[in-house]
């Protein structure tokens, strides 16, 4: 089945220099194994494409049902140097939440 992340997750994003971080949090405990399995660093890197110039790293926080993504070189230089309207990556969590994943499991939400 196809699932939009917005329906099973919430999240928040921010910046450290030119690196953006996105915390992606499952809305229910049973959704965490789903995002852990399907929302890999590689999938997220391909999804954002040219919006992220550096690598994408992923860290797991199963205790919070959360994944933390670091998107390197994603903020146009970061800080006051960036010419982006969203120079601090505040809307990138929402950008990830619009992603659709195709999963083998059946879940209810």
């Amino acid at each position: 089945m196809k699932v939009r992340l917005l329906d099973i997750c919430h999240g928040r994003s921010g910046d450290k220099g030119d690196t953006a971080n996105i915390g992606l949090i499952a809305r229910k405990k049973e959704f965490y194994p789903i995002i852990e399995k399907y929302v890999t660093a590689q999938v997220v890197g391909e999804y954002f494409g040219q919006m992220v110039l550096g690598k994408v790293e992923r860290y797991e926080l199963p205790n919070l049902w959360a994944l933390n993504f670091l998107l390197h070189n994603a903020l146009g230089g970061g800080g006051t140097k960036s010419l982006k309207n969203d120079a601090q990556g505040k809307t990138l969590a929402a950008a990830l939440l619009r992603m659709q994943i195709d999963i083998k499991e059946k879940i209810e939400y």
Partner: peptide, 28 residues
Amino acid sequence: KEQLVYEIGDPRKYITPDCVADFTTIQL
């Protein structure tokens, strides 16, 4: 939770001058 994941790097190594906190051990 949303604030805990805000602007963090490696959650096992949240480094401050006072200690290194492991965010993967936090129980809510």
